[in-house]
Design a binder for these strands. Structure first.
Lengths: 200, 200
DNA sequence: GTCTATAGGCGGATAGAC
DNA sequence: GTCTATCCGCCTATAGAC
């Protein structure tokens, strides 16, 4: 009776991590459909059959790839702490912090895949609504009648920022400094969250 | 020597149009990679080989699908006419008019494909920069040092709007009336185009 | 113009030997 | 745990008969 009788995942941890890392970049660069298990296995230096051995299906591999590294419960308090008037700026800065980090690879994978694949789109939509938007909106104590619209407006701006900066790579947004984007896009989010909804 | 000795496209126009229509919806719903010539042919009620007969390759079929119906030279004057202070609002309204129309199907196809396919991403990027942004920015007579940033900021907001409304279908943005979106997002574009770039 | 037949490739998944 | 062998499917594209 060893100490790890429960919760132990099957397989050699090193091999498993190598597959996960290769899968993360593959899904981020090509999206769910275009990424192939065979290519991922080659990059990881393992046999394709091993990928199935560890993750059973391509879908479960994708889930393991994107689900692990994003934990909004840890980040959001930092966004919501501090003055209510700077929520927009802090939201942009935190957002960029996640996407510019290694963790952002998983986010790119999710966004890329969500566009050409129905069930990943649903995954993204549910992640947005239940994990991010609801928490932010709850904390800001908004009019319940307006909150959903405010939340989805924020989503449009942040999704577009991610698309242009990390997927399409449109300049100069793709290479702009976080400070520039915080200064320009922060006020937009601020107005979507706490400003008037009709006129600027 | 008939009147149409030159410029006559090969093939039966009806069949050709049926293929084009089927291709437009297929590319819009599934993106370039996932859409198949076989499925397009089935929807159009023709033989797969005919698709190649008319359009040679899948890539040329895609080009014919998205290139024809979008002509910014016709729309942009409407956006730019009138007061400089309402450019943002008119830009949103025109944008929604295009995407909500049948023509918008081609736009969805381009956006969806651009995410999982390099050469379509380049197609979209060049379309944005040379056909849309340059014309708008030129007409507004902006500081040349700031114009590129302003243009790409506008792109982030419009791309995100398209993503959430037409691809991910996040509510309530997906079902919002044009008036609502013009009132909320118009001011954002207005500030990106003519407002201060540092603070709101 | 239209269709049949097929070449030639890559994909996910599985069974079973070692 | 790891790998070989293989099934079975879908794809684009082409040659050539009708």
């Amino acid at each position: 009776m060893t100490a790890r009788r429960t919760g132990r995942r099957p397989g050699n941890p090193d091999t498993r991590d190598a597959i996960l890392a290769a899968a993360r970049t593959a899904f981020a660069e090509r999206g769910f459909d275009a990424a192939s298990i065979r290519a991922i296995a080659t990059t990881a230096g393992v046999d394709p059959a091993l990928v199935h051995h560890y993750f059973r299906t391509k879908e479960e591999l994708f889930r393991a790839t994107v689900a692990i590294p994003i934990d909004p419960a840890e980040l959001l308090p930092r966004v919501l702490a501090g003055g209510r008037d700077e929520v927009g700026a802090r939201l942009v800065r935190t957002f960029l912090g996640v996407w510019d980090s290694p963790v952002g690879t998983a986010a790119v994978a999710l966004l890329r895949s969500a566009v050409s694949n129905q069930w990943t789109a649903r995954l993204l939509r549910e992640f947005l609504t239940t994990q991010i938007l609801r928490r932010v909106l709850d904390q800001l104590d908004l009019d319940p009648a307006e909150a959903p619209l405010r939340g989805s407006l924020v989503s449009t701006q942040l999704a577009g920022l991610a698309m242009m900066r990390y997927v399409i790579r449109l300049e100069p947004v793709a290479s702009a400094t976080p400070d520039t984007l915080v200064a320009t896009i922060g006020p937009t989010l601020q107005r979507y969250l706490t400003g008037p909804l009709d006129q600027s």
